[in-house]
Simulated scan of single mutants.
Amino acid sequence: MSAPLRRRHLVLAGAAASLALLVAGCTSNQPKDTATQAAQTQAVSDNDAPGKQVTIGFSAPAADHGWMSSITKSAVAEAGKYPDVKLVQAEATNDVNLQISQIESFINDKVDAIVLLPFDGAALTEVATKAMRAGIPVINVDREFSDPNAARVTVLGDNYGMGVSAGKYICDQLGGKTDAKVAEIAGIDSLPLTQDRSKGFKDALATCGLSVSNRVAADFTVQGGEEAAANLLQAAPKLDAIWNHDDDQGVGVMAAIENAGRHEFFMVGGAGSKQVMNQIKADNTVIKATVIYPSTQAADAVRLARLLVQGKAMSDLVEVEVPRKVQLYAPVVTKANVDKYLPTAFES
């Protein structure tokens, strides 16, 4: 065979081999990759499988309103789902000194983890730090400590986000009506959470050229809500929308609205009570929406405490450790999606 012909033969052989490899790749590698991806997508976490026994100390303020009552009930219910979890529940209290002594007892008893919704985050910071130094992970719920090192994990609602969600919903409903009268019924004005909610509301309204025309503050109680709403309605003869920060105080707000015979506006609630969600579903009152402030935070904290002690992570994350902070979303509940949120709503 001549040299030119030999070279041509080698080139053709090489091309054939390359083509064979390419075809093989198209016919065998792709299904293998797809199968691998499918297996990864369908992978099931073993996080719920029974593991090391975990004793969790739980302390929260007194259940003096529906949201706080639901916090405790949901934590207890969540712990009951796991045979490897023992929840040691301290007496609910608004006494800071008593709550501090409860955490001291948990430390002395060498519990595996502590889930703590402090009556006062700053006041409980020191004892929470003591627990952390003793090797007991603390999961801080809702009211933050003054030092982030006092907790391994912090589970929060989104107060600023509540205001944003409420304001955006009102903007969407009023459809560019820049002369609309929008009122706000806040909670306790001295609390940072109330200030955050109001700021988020103001910021969201500004995006559609609206502002708060009338504002009053209540105290998260039925009586306070009724009194504040009565004063508001007297001062504002015409309104287009109201945002009430809290569905517990909203019971009083609705009483004032009915007493005044006012129905020219729509109202957005806050926190997400079952009573308000049922009213939204029935669509026969001025309440057309509410913004969730999850009362499931302590239940989430119980789950996270269990994962921490058992050395597991959150299965839907690539990260192999439980995150340091979990902030829950503040969705708007309307007639269109209310059935999705009713199962986790709290009783006012």
Rank of each mutant, 00 (worst) to 15 (best):
K177G: 10
L117G: 03
V251H: 05
E184V: 12
D203H: 06
Q195G: 11
T207E: 11
H245I: 13
A228V: 04
G157E: 13
L156I: 09
G135Y: 01
L210S: 04
E126P: 00
F145A: 14
D247R: 08
R215W: 01
N214Q: 07
N214M: 00
C208E: 05
L239N: 03
A229C: 10
R143M: 12
I185E: 08
Q223N: 06
A134P: 06
T125G: 02
G187P: 09
M162R: 12
K238T: 14
V111M: 00
T221L: 01
G187I: 10
Y160S: 11
G167W: 09
Q249D: 06
S190M: 08
K168V: 15
D196L: 12
R152L: 11
R143V: 15
D158S: 15
G135C: 07
N231T: 09
R215T: 08
A113T: 00
V138N: 02
A206V: 08
I114G: 00
D196Y: 12
S165H: 08
G175S: 12
G250S: 09
A122Q: 08
D240I: 08
G200R: 05
V182K: 13
V222E: 03
R133Y: 02
V216I: 06
Q234E: 07
K177V: 10
D247H: 06
N244S: 14
S190K: 14
V127K: 01
D142L: 13
F201D: 04
A180G: 12
I139K: 10
R197D: 07
A241Q: 04
A131K: 07
A131W: 02
N140W: 05
E144G: 14
Q173I: 12
L233M: 07
L156E: 09
A134S: 14
D172I: 04
G167T: 11
G176I: 13
G167V: 11
G200P: 03
K238F: 03
I170K: 14
W243H: 12
A218F: 04
A218W: 03
S213H: 07
N140S: 15
I185Q: 13
